[in-house]
Computed example of a mutant assay.
Amino acid sequence: MDELNGAGVALITPFNADGTIDFGSLEKLIDHQIKGGMDYLVSLGTTGETATLSETERKSVWEFTARHAAGRIPLVAGIGGNNTAEIVHQLAAFDTTGYAAILSVSPYYNKPTQEGIYQHYKALSVATPLPLIIYNIPGRTGSNISPETTVRLARDFDNIVATKDASGSFDQFSRIMRDKPAEFLLISGDDPMTLPMMALGAVGIISVVANAFPREIAELARLCRIGDYESARVIHNKLIRITELCFVEGNPAGIKNILTQLGICGGTVRLPLVEVSDATRMAIADELQLLR
């Protein structure tokens, strides 16, 4: 899975003011990523507000993204949830044209045991026609995928090829790196963790901040891959404040406001999310002025 090395971006889903999908802005965003040197795109990860999209809307976004990317860059599709049978159904029905892998978030709200998580991904591994990336983000799902479960899945199923980990636990990252099969990949799922995780052996990042700053995130990942951590730290430090502002009022409201101020798309989000406050908007404007 060389396609998963380096910098990927969890694309936002742009909306018009009336809440419909803004395909014109999505086209502009995809081009922004490709011109910025990103290594791959993730269509409809959790940053894409996928939980608020209908089945028809999800299909239209995946198809549009594949059609517009037109083979210029590898694509990953986000297909996950807390109803295993429904996700199996979605995977079986998914049109894989243009896509290299599936990213699937760990079941949320249900708070399954480690055995339940294992059985969930086992079912998905059988159903998916593409390689599968585990997504562990305990702050959103309410449960953590332990290193033991991650490694067990990696060893038992050849098509489970990577984990995107946003647990924030360096003990967990270290244990995964120590015990995993050689070909299994660790990917950062948290922008501020990218540099130290890559120093431990992660192969890259699936980034939110890259929606706005693809060139910087792609270069940071490239520098880490060649072991130039001193140069990578310059970019890491440069992006600390804008990354904080990106998440201070939730994702993707923050990154959408940044993209609005950069003229790439509007800031509309779907309820129950709301746009950022005036205070955050002004703080973002001040930081963007410093970054220019």
Rank of each mutant, 00 (worst) to 15 (best):
M1Q: 02
G8N: 03
V9W: 01
V9N: 13
L11H: 12
I12Y: 05
F15C: 03
N16K: 14
G19F: 03
T20A: 10
I21F: 03
G24C: 05
E27V: 03
K28W: 03
D31S: 02
G36A: 02
M38R: 00
D39P: 01
L41Y: 02
L41P: 04
V42W: 05
L44H: 02
G45I: 04
T47Y: 05
G48S: 12
G48L: 10
E49S: 11
T50K: 03
A51V: 12
A51L: 13
L53A: 07
S54K: 07
T56W: 03
W62Q: 04
W62T: 01
F64G: 09
F64L: 07
F64D: 05
A69H: 00
G71K: 01
G71H: 08
G71W: 05
P74R: 10
A77H: 14
A77G: 11
G78S: 11
I79M: 14
N82G: 09
N83I: 06
A85R: 13
E86R: 02
I87Y: 01
V88N: 05
L91K: 13
A93I: 08
T96L: 01
T97S: 09
T97H: 14
A101D: 11
A101P: 09
L103A: 05
S104I: 04
V105C: 03
Y108R: 11
Y109P: 02
Y109D: 05
N110P: 01
K111R: 15
P112L: 14
P112D: 09
T113Q: 10
Y121W: 08
K122W: 00
A123K: 07
A123D: 11
S125N: 10
V126D: 09
P129V: 00
Y135R: 10
Y135I: 12
N136K: 11
I137C: 11
S146Q: 08
S146E: 10
P147T: 07
T149L: 01
V151F: 00
V151G: 02
F157A: 03
D158N: 05
N159D: 07
I160P: 03
I160G: 08
A162V: 11
K164H: 14
S167Y: 04
F170T: 12
D171P: 00
Q172A: 15
F173V: 10
I176S: 10
I176H: 08
M177K: 07
R178D: 04
D179K: 11
K180W: 08
P181Q: 09
D191C: 14
M193S: 15
M198V: 07
G201V: 13
A202E: 11
V203M: 04
V203P: 00
I206N: 01
V208A: 09
V208G: 01
V208S: 14
A210N: 04
E216A: 11
E216C: 00
A218G: 13
E219V: 00
E219C: 04
E219K: 09
L223T: 06
I226C: 10
D228G: 07
D228M: 12
Y229A: 04
Y229N: 13
A232C: 08
H236T: 14
N237K: 14
I240N: 14
I242S: 00
I242Q: 06
C246I: 12
V248R: 15
N251Y: 09
N251T: 15
N251F: 12
P252D: 12
K256A: 08
K256D: 08
L259D: 02
I264M: 10
V269P: 06
R270L: 15
P272C: 05
V276W: 10
T280I: 15
T280W: 09
I284M: 10
E287C: 07
L290K: 13
